[in-house]
Design a protein around this nucleic acid. Structure first.
Lengths: 235, 235
DNA sequence: ATGCTAATTAACTCGACAGTTAACTGTCGC
DNA sequence: GCGACAGTTAACTGTCGAGTTAATTAGCAT
């Protein structure tokens, strides 16, 4: 009886399905319109659910936005965790990571949009998320392990600050997508053409590997003991 | 008489001043609230001008937004043009450019916000700008000249694609600021502390110079070993 | 069946905001 | 020193959208 019922597909009532439908519609609406311009009426219409259900399940428009934001981050973290690069040479592992990131941004424009939006609003919502802790470590973990292997084997330089390094990789990968429209207009270029994406992959890999394999002599500021002065700028 | 009048400061009527006040207020309001959440009432109140004036001078909220966007781009272009790096060694010139960019983003959060916002809305307004042509060449010009000098003297590699290279520099510089809030929350770091900014400068300079001075042998193209599927594409 | 609760619905409230109207005033040319 | 127009004002309009109300229905336990 119970099994027969749960086996059946969407009847008239199904809490989980309704919730999920709302969340999916919200993901699209928010990432297309932005938080203020997105309308709950539109979201309800998009998924064929009564507007009241949004308030029933998510409390408010902001509650729904937060849920969508969290789901987007959960996706990313899940992906980054299941990546297996331990069997690759450090340099190849870095390259695999970069390609993974680029593929992810390419296939998940929602993520890119949410990231931009959330930053525009000063991470007001992310800051409040109860799941924040879950987003913290996973991101740098994989990179830190690759880095350590590469440093032990002498292939990578020793003085890499992991967080700044991680930010650099992300920057090189994501800014190409998050700013694709203004870049496309200004440089009159089809940013997402296969050829341009492939060029981008190669450029990012070369930027990162050349940095990691930079000879000591070439460094901007030899990381010996404490050096007070800065590279060039006055400040 | 005439000179006496034009010497006097803001009386009751002053078209240019009013227009300028509106524009300044719009810059703040739009970059803080975003296009949809920014309100013309708020802008009018901010600068102590009657709301009707916005429509008198700019036609509509979108017209005002476009004017603000253009003013922000004009600022940037003006700055990039007056930079004098011809007397510097190519490597030092690159470093100067990077520092200039970082300083600019640091001191002009409005610009960073507008860039994010405009990209979020798929460059819908930038695309319509009549001043678009003015924004195109200046940006890559300086870099192209530095690159050429460095290549002629043999200090830089020959196979640098200028646009992709320019995008990489921008990415490394701007993403740190445009995403500072989510990064700050996730890595529990004060992104704009003097120490972290200085570290960032050094990292970006090293990324860029190591790329430019990368030995042929190290390039991604015909890699020593089994490097991934994506790398080896022709351009 | 009967009653209880979770899920769903249509219809409503109310404030905010883009844009408008039309009256009014300072300034300048003549 | 007056007429015309650029610049300025307060008050208004209509729409849209977040959130609410209260009635209704499906399913489930007993």
């Amino acid at each position: 009886m119970k099994s027969r019922k749960s086996a059946k597909i969407p009847q008239k009532r199904n809490a989980d399905a309704t919730r999920a439908k709302i969340l999916r519609a919200a993901l699209s609406e928010f990432s297309e319109q932005g938080l203020p311009a997105a309308s709950t009426d539109a979201i309800a219409e998009r998924c064929g659910v009564n507007k009241r259900m949004i308030y029933y399940y998510f409390g408010s428009k902001e509650g729904l936005y937060l849920a969508a934001l969290e789901s987007v981050y959960e996706n990313l973290v899940a992906l980054e965790q299941e990546i297996e690069v331990e069997h690759l040479e450090p340099a190849a592992a870095i390259e695999a990571m970069i390609n993974l990131k680029i593929d992810y941004y390419l296939e998940n424009p929602h993520f890119v949009s949410f990231l931009s939006m959330e930053n525009f609003y000063r991470a007001r919502h992310l800051r409040k998320s109860k799941k924040l802790e879950m987003f913290k470590t996973p991101l740098t973990d994989v990179i830190a392990r690759i880095l350590e292997r590469g440093q032990r084997s002498g292939q990578f330089r020793q003085d890499v600050e992991p967080v700044d390094f991680y930010i650099s990789i992300c920057a090189l990968c994501i800014m190409y997508f998050s700013n694709q429209h203004s870049l496309g207009v200004i440089f009159e270029r089809e940013m997402t053409s296969a050829a341009n994406i492939e060029r981008r992959r190669r450029t990012v890999v070369e930027f990162v590997l050349s940095y990691l394999q930079m000879p000591d002599a070439m460094r901007a500021r030899p990381p010996r003991r404490k050096l007070g002065r800065h590279v060039s700028l006055v400040s």
